[in-house]
């Protein structure tokens, strides 16, 4: 019931978290998802419209 001073009295303490890097913060933000998927969509459209896609279609 009574804890020794300095022993926190049995209350769980939060582990000190290491500060996140800016890159880690950006990767966890919604802007990263928007940017990633937006880039993938544009890259995918460019790929489908490119001659590479024509080459993937067999010429029968």
């Amino acid at each position: 019931m009574f804890g020794m001073p300095g022993l926190n009295g049995g209350i769980p303490t939060q582990q000190p978290q290491e500060p996140k890097s800016r890159l880690q913060e950006f990767k966890e933000s919604p802007a990263f998802t928007i940017l990633l998927n937006g880039t993938l969509f544009v890259a995918g459209v460019a790929f489908i419209q490119s001659p590479l896609m024509d080459m993937l279609a067999p010429q029968l």
């Binding site: 995918g44 489908i48 896609m53 024509d54 993937l56 279609a57 067999p58 029968l60």
Partner: peptide
């Protein structure tokens, strides 16, 4: 986005 590449081949992307 959808494209008909040839009469037999179609490609598409969705985000």
């Amino acid at each position: 986005f959808w494209r008909k590449v040839t009469p037999n081949v179609e490609a598409g992307i969705e985000t």
